[in-house]
Design a protein around this nucleic acid. Structure first.
Lengths: 167, 167
DNA sequence: TTAGTAATGTTATAATATAACATTGACTTA
DNA sequence: TAAGTCAATGTTATATTATAACATTACTAA
């Protein structure tokens, strides 16, 4: 019975880290999944995902459109929403309801009901999976109601901002 | 060590029940809290709360406006949003992010981070409190991130609709 | 009575999201 | 290769949700 899951830092996103590495690794995974699932990786899809990988801060649809425009892409609302729908459907992106905004998924490939931690100070978001959150519902709940999807968004202050914070 | 909490039916809202009783009891609580907190119970506030008590189904702001109009109230968007903001602030109403809609609170008076069960079939919503949900986050999560607010919305099928459902 | 204030009323507009239809381009297959 | 098909993108218009800013009312209190 070894503990295999190290998952050393569930909130790496909030802390200093080598983000270039983080970015490249996520992008590599992303591309790999497109190959495995035989999906078409178009310039637009790639671009939107790259935008969302920038700094662990969620982007609104209209922010994405502005960035697309700057890069010479078409930028009417359906452009963003369609690509986002596609990326969400295939598990590459999640929507944060609290913010009406979108983030790149940290655990792509497996369909899951992610839990988000949203720092109201630095506005970064970290995704933790079920195992990491330790989240469970009691027997009664699950016998009374068949859960198909769970939206869980924790709003608060991240470790890094706590260090800095006065009030 | 007695089990005190009976909480016999966490999802009463989904099942047949004496809703007149349910309605009146909630309304009585509501009025009582206004007295205790020395808040002003205006016709508009009362009306909106009554609308939200109707059948355990959330109402959107514009649905509320339509209903207000029918009852001779003014019905431009700020009317609804202001009253809803007030009722939310004082813990009488919650917003369901998944639906951009509003429900009357089932446990008014205590500030809390409610968990909602949303039936995608009958569209009713039930609120369960922390104790009932049995929901906990693990040590790691709470040491890494100071949770101030939790949005938890479970989407699925209620017991009543399961009985009925074919597929 | 008048000044202050909370609540409501009103107008306009912001922010988020989707419907519906057109065009493009890649791929198939006859 | 021409015609057909289909997924992706482009475009126009509009729906839905929410807020800003200022006006009026009606109660309170000096």
């Amino acid at each position: 019975m070894k503990k295999k899951q190290t998952s050393p830092n569930i909130s790496k996103n909030f802390m200093d880290h080598n983000h270039d590495l983080c970015f490249e690794s996520a992008l590599k995974d992303f591309k790999q999944h497109f190959i495995e699932k035989e999906l078409k990786l178009t310039p637009l899809r790639l671009k939107v995902f790259q935008l969302l990988l920038k700094d662990h801060r969620p982007l609104g649809a209209y922010q994405i459109l502005d960035l697309l425009r700057k890069d010479g892409f078409s930028s009417t609302p359906p452009i963003a929403y369609r690509v986002l729908d596609f990326l969400i459907e295939h598990g590459f992106v999640h929507k944060i309801k609290k913010l009406n905004a979108f983030v790149a998924c940290s655990h792509p490939g497996n369909s899951h009901s992610p839990t988000f931690m949203i720092c109201r100070k630095c506005e970064k978001v970290a995704e933790i999976n079920e195992k990491e959150s330790g989240l469970k519902f009691n027997k009664e709940t699950s016998s009374e109601f068949k859960i198909e999807e769970a939206i869980i968004e924790l709003i608060g202050i991240c470790k890094n901002c706590t260090k800095i914070e006065v009030i």
